[in-house]
Design a protein around this nucleic acid. Structure first.
Lengths: 191, 191
DNA sequence: TGTATTTCCATAGGCGCCTATATAATCCGA
DNA sequence: TCGGATTATATAGGCGCCTATGGAAATACA
C-alpha cells in the first residue's frame, strides 16, 4: 500500500495505523477517499458523469418526490449548505428543477428533472451491484459496518471532544509529570 | 444525531447507514470529520493554532530529523503535493525551515524550527491524552481499529473498483433483467 | 557531448463536506 | 400595525486530501 522507497533511510509506515484521533481521523478519511475514487472510476468507465454527493439527494427525490432544501438536509442528515451546493451542481447538470414554493416565499421545491429520473433509473442496477459488493465486503471484514455503527454510537454517547477534555482535566496533575517525562524521553530520541 | 423536524412529512434517517459504496464512503467521511472537528476544538480550547495535517509531518521530523518532501510523502503514505502543501502552511506558521539539499538541486530539506520543536513538546501530553482516549474508544467499540484494518486489507487484496467491475461484468445478463424489474418497481413507487 | 528520460517539488484545481454569514420571508407578541 | 425573532436558503471560505501538470535538475544512453 505504501510506496516502498528502498533507498530511504527511514522505514516507511502507515502512520494512520497508530492510535490517536489524528491517526484515526486520517485513516477514516483515507478509506473514504479510496472508496469514493473507486466508485467514481466505475461511473467514468460507464461514461456517466456522476458525483458522489448527488446520490443521497437523487435517491431521496426519486423515492419521495419534490421537497425543500431544508427537508432534504434533515432527511439526509447533512447540512443545508451542502444540499444547496448539491442542488446547484445537479441543476447545472440538468438533472434537477428548482421551483418557488407556493406557500412560502423563502422556500424552494426541488425535483428531479426527466433527465435526472432517467439517470437514476440507468444507475439503479449499478447501485444494486455496488450494494452487493459492499455486502460481500462487509462480510469479508467481519462486519466493519457494525463496527462503524458502534463507533457512531459511542461518539453519540460521549463526543471525542468531551472524552479528551475529561482526560486532560483528569490528568491535570499527572500530565505535568507526563510532560516532563515525555519531553525528556522525546528529547533523547531526537538525533 | 439527525435534526428531527417534527413537521417533516418524511421520516428522517441516516442515509449512510445503508449499504453501498456511496453510503459507506460518506459514513467514513462523516466520522473522519467529526473526529477532526472534535480534536480541533481541543487545540482551540488550548489556544494553540494547529491543523490536523501538521501532525504526521511534525512527528516524523521530530523523530527522524531533516528530510525531503518525497521521503516524508513515502514515510507518511500520502502524496507529495500533500506534503508540499503541509510544508507550506507549517512554514507560514514559522514551525518549519526549508533548505536546499546540498547534494541535489531539486530537493529540499525540511526541518522543524525551534518554534516547531517547542510546539511539538507542548502538544505531546495532549496527544498522549488523545491516544489514551482513542484506546478506550477502541475498546468500547470492540476494536473498530481492527475492523478498519480488515477493510484496508480487503481493499488491498481487491480494490472496490475491481469488485464492482466484476459484479457488473458477471451480472451482464442478469443486470438487464434487474434493470427492467428495478425500473418497474421504482416507477410504481414514484408519486 | 547531446538528448531523452526520470526524478523532485511546486502549483492548480477539484472533491464533499463543514461553519459562518448575509439576505429575504415569515411568524408572533406587544 | 410594527418590530424583533425565527426560519429558509444562498454564498463564502476552509479543511485535508487527491490527480494532473509544469519546470528544473539529475541521470542514462547513444
Amino acid at each position: 500500500m505504501e510506496i516502498q522507497d528502498s533507498t530511504s533511510p527511514v522505514e516507511p509506515r502507515d502512520y494512520t495505523r497508530e492510535l490517536g484521533p489524528s491517526a484515526l481521523g486520517a485513516r477514516l478519511r483515507r478509506l473514504s477517499e479510496r472508496i469514493d475514487e473507486d466508485a467514481g472510476r466505475i461511473y467514468a468507465d460507464l461514461g456517466i458523469p456522476f458525483r458522489q454527493q448527488w446520490w443521497g439527494v437523487m435517491e431521496h427525490l426519486y423515492d419521495h418526490g419534490p421537497t425543500s432544501v431544508g427537508h432534504l438536509a434533515a432527511a439526509l442528515g447533512i447540512s443545508q449548505p451542502s444540499v444547496s451546493q448539491t442542488r446547484r451542481s445537479l441543476e447545472a447538470a440538468g438533472l434537477l428543477h428548482l421551483r418557488a414554493d407556493a406557500n412560502d416565499g423563502r422556500s424552494r421545491r426541488l425535483d428531479l428533472s426527466r433527465d435526472g429520473r432517467e439517470l437514476y433509473l440507468r444507475l439503479s442496477p449499478v447501485w444494486a451491484a455496488m450494494d452487493a459488493v459492499a455486502r460481500d465486503l462487509n462480510a469479508e471484514t467481519d462486519n466493519v459496518v457494525a463496527a462503524l455503527e458502534r463507533l457512531d454510537s459511542a461518539l453519540a454517547r460521549s463526543s471525542l471532544y468531551e472524552r479528551i477534555r475529561n482526560a486532560l482535566d483528569a490528568g491535570k496533575h499527572a500530565s505535568r509529570a507526563d510532560f516532563s517525562a515525555g519531553a525528556g524521553a522525546r528529547a533523547r530520541r531526537n538525533p
